[in-house]
Computed example of a mutant assay.
Amino acid sequence: MIPLLDLQAQYASIKDEIEPAVLRVLASGHYVLGVEVARFEEEFATYCDASHAIAVNTGTSALHLALLAADVGPGDEVLTVAFTFVATASAVCYTGARPVFIDVDPVTLTMDPAKLEAAITSRTKAIMPVHLYGQMADMDAIKEIADRYGIPVIEDACQAHGAEYKGRRAGSIGASGCFSFYPGKNLGACGEGGIVVTNNDEHARKIRMLRDWGQEQRYHHALKGFNYRMDEIQGAILRVKLRHLEAWTEARRVRAEHYSALLAHSRSVLAPVAMIDRRHVYHVYAVRTRDREQLQHTLRSEGIHSGLHYPIPVHLQKAHLDLGYRPGDLPESEAAAREVLSLPIYPELTLKQVERVAAVLEQDAYVS
């Protein structure tokens, strides 16, 4: 059996580092926003080439607070994409603002800058591109438009830990960048977690207050805040895992390149394209196919797990029908939602397993 993801294999490889770190926190008696979280913030900010990092309890909370720090609120609009996990749009809705969806580029499946400017109105308060599957959006083109209109860019980098655009790290280009540490992410906690990185001192100050009930100091509440704090155990675990992230990333890239070489002339799938000016970190290795259901069935019958990221774009989700979108409004996003199929990819996946997955895909092409 080849799983889509194997967190047990990852844990086994660093068990001797993780367990002492957790026990150290348990013995300390300090379990929320302590030394481990503070040190992780410093280390992750350095990793992202950012001045500040503010750890929170989820990636969704990171997006929410980054938007609030940019003064997004009721009556505002935030331009983002619909081909993403629903949390991107949900975070906008939490502020009282309205998400306005831009279609994606058919090659990268990230925000299409050519469609961005026409969507800007007097109500546009932020632009939030999503660095999907581990590849960054076209940030120069997006920023050029945003800067012309004086609109802040908030990077949804929840799938892009360590990704780069023209040598610049994800999260370091916009007003802020938001990451998730959900267990399956390239850098994942043993539970939930998230972080905002920023070079803006005032945004960092405001986010630190908002995550902890709006306190400037204990029991002095200057803002209406939230309980979005990261716990110490997750901070300690993430510090251990961060030391391995670059090695894990390169392992993912090697496996992705092997897949792409094997599938270069595939009759069943189209391999993802890594843009030459970007470092793709392959949180997901998503191929495209017009025979997804059949391919999934074939893979399953051979003991190979696959996934769908994401089968229904946000604008067509029942929860967001109130936004007024209809089928056909975002054709590239809708086509991607029908065609993407995620193959197993993680650092512990062997190259022989990659070859096995590719062989089954091609076998299905000839059977079909």
Rank of each mutant, 00 (worst) to 15 (best):
T108K: 02
D105H: 11
P129N: 08
V104W: 00
K224A: 12
K143D: 11
V107Y: 14
Y133V: 01
S122R: 12
F101S: 02
G171Y: 02
S172E: 10
K166L: 14
K206S: 05
G225R: 00
A119L: 14
M209V: 08
M209H: 03
I120L: 15
G177L: 05
G96N: 05
R211T: 10
M111Q: 04
I127Y: 02
L116I: 08
V107Q: 13
C178V: 10
I142V: 12
Y133N: 09
P99I: 10
E117S: 13
P99C: 09
R218V: 12
T108W: 03
G184E: 06
A146N: 04
G167Q: 13
Q135G: 04
N227G: 11
D201S: 13
S180Y: 05
I151F: 08
P106M: 06
E117N: 13
A137L: 08
P183R: 03
I207L: 07
V153P: 00
P152R: 05
P129I: 04
E216W: 10
I127L: 12
R123Q: 15
V107H: 13
G162M: 00
G174Q: 07
A222Q: 08
C190T: 13
T110Y: 00
L132M: 10
L223H: 11
A160C: 12
A114F: 15
G177P: 12
D147K: 13
A119V: 08
M209D: 00
Y165S: 01
Q135D: 05
F179L: 05
Q159S: 14
G225P: 01
Y133M: 11
E192P: 02
A204G: 09
D212E: 11
E216D: 14
K125T: 03
L210V: 06
I151Q: 07
D147R: 10
G225Y: 03
K143Y: 07
R211A: 09
G194I: 00
A189Y: 00
R168D: 01
E155D: 10
R205Q: 15
D201G: 09
E155Q: 11
Q159N: 14
R205E: 14
G188M: 01
D140Y: 12
L116T: 03
V100N: 00
I142Y: 03
R168W: 04
I195F: 04
A170R: 01
G167S: 13
P99F: 06
G191W: 07
G167I: 12
H131C: 06
